[in-house]
Amino acid sequence: MASNAAVPFWRSAGMTYITYSNICASLVRNCLKEPHKTEAISREKVHFVVSKWADGKPEKPTIRTDQPE
């Protein structure tokens, strides 16, 4: 369990456990051999639109995507 000592570091960098585990998962996916690699990487596509609300009004939505339009 070498990663145990790392927890305070990534947390102080503003990461949550989710971000941390996603980075780890992406590393593992990249370690796979073809053809499993492309298949696994296709499962980490991210696309959604998020908009914050303030005082009952939506602010400008931001698109979170990892694919070029």
Partner: peptide
């Protein structure tokens, strides 16, 4: 509408996967 804090749409453009949902959760 005063109580709405965050609104997330267009989730299902790609097939749903854990990476996407975890980014949303984050």
């Amino acid at each position: 509408k005063k109580d709405i804090e965050l609104n997330i749409t267009e989730l299902q453009k790609n097939p749903l996967n854990y990476a996407q949902v975890s980014v949303i959760a984050d």
